[in-house]
Design a protein around this nucleic acid. Sequence first.
DNA 1: TGGAATGATTACTT
DNA 2: AAGTAATCATTCCA
Length: 378
Amino acid sequence: MAAPPRPVPPQPAPRRRAPAAPLGRDTSDVLQQIMAITDQSLDEAQARKHALNCHRMKSALFSVLCEIKGNTAVSIRHQEEDPPDAQLLRLDNMLLAEGVSRPEKRGRGAAAGATATPGGCPNDNSIEHSDYRAKLSQIRQIYHSELEKYEQACREFTTHVTNLLREQSRVRPVSSKEMEHMVGIIHSKFSAIQRQLKQSTCEAVMTLRSRLLDARRKRRNFSKQATEVLNEYFYSHLSNPYPSEETKEELARKGGITVSQVSNWFGNKRIRYKKNTGKFQEEATMYTGKTSTASMARGPGGQPSCQSTASPGSCGPFPLASGGDMVLTLRTLAFLQPPPGGACLQTPAHSSWQRATTPQPTSSPAGDSGSFNSDVSN
DNA sequence: TGGAATGATTACTT
DNA sequence: AAGTAATCATTCCA
């Protein structure tokens, strides 16, 4: 087998001294002049450039440069298509989702955040998120103006470089591929800047979100209506303050809050009540008075949604401090007679709650030793 | 302005 | 999965 042809070593680019044989003295001079341009001032260079353009050997020089270029075969590093950058894609998606990268639209903006934020009535959301929307709008404006600036600068610089290359192409061979390559480099540099812009915009949006949309930070006290509804249920089911899912839904609807807020409220209430029963006596009295009045007005069985009444023999832990609950007391008395077998027909009360809230004689500010612990719904 | 009240979150238990 | 207990973060009020 014949040995593969040895690659021809690239000829060194002509430096100060031109190859003597094929080129004459004129050409050598011209080349020297070209090389010297880099050491000259701008004005000198311009003058020299003009002189070169008008030089009688210009076309000869051009063809020589073409030949040299052909031989040295300066390969334009093939600019492989960048694979779609995952991080850039994420940034773009996020900016799109936040309504930053799309043109501003009325009423949009924080919608994603608003729907994700639990709690509060819808009005609250719109009021609280208006601040967010305003700030997001500012971010959007800055983002777009910066983006526009970068694009403008990119266009100008590309034009400038292209013109420069076109002009140079009069004295040296510049292929369209080279031009494209150069333009590609410029674009990739500018897109790096744009990525930076996108990154910082995303960070700004994230900060804004956490500052203005974080549910815990935007805590609002429930409306009086909601608190009343919840307290009424709580104190009227003191022996077993564990509303069912359906009841929670109903309470949520009545109070204009979410089911999870109802759950949170009952969780907090149970804990805090258990921890400091005495502190809640006044409140308990108030609500048990209210609900008993209401139930008297409604008559027996007036609370269809309250299915988790205390079971007989596991009466509510607290004495009814207020008067006006004669009916309740009598009803409670009735419950003191355990049914045959003593079985609980109702939802089983949570034993831990009952254990923990077993009435302590000292915890009753009313000191009414004659009254019975009662769940008013009984 | 400080402390109490309160809604939400989190780690853990049942 | 629902509840408890501790804690956080915010709001309210004297």
